[in-house]
Amino acid sequence: MRLSDCKTKKEGIIKEILESEFDNKMLEYGIVPGVKLIVVSRAAFGGPIYIAIGAQRIAIRKKEATHIILE
């Protein structure tokens, strides 16, 4: 499943980060395969997605979230 399709308050483990122009940026934020994340909130009208990885809270655009594959 892609992160962009993940519902609010659902948890998931990152399986893979698809190649893109911003994959490195995501990796630097600790969005790496193997970590557990939870979707905290989603902005209205298909806006950014707010995820938490442990104590870290990150917002990413929906477009970027399509490159994150969850188990």
Binding site: F22, I31, Q56, R57, I58
Partner: peptide, 11 residues
């Protein structure tokens, strides 16, 4: 540059 948006949500 491709626009991207990854931002930390501070406490």
């Amino acid at each position: 540059y491709k626009s991207f948006f990854i931002t930390e949500m501070p406490s």
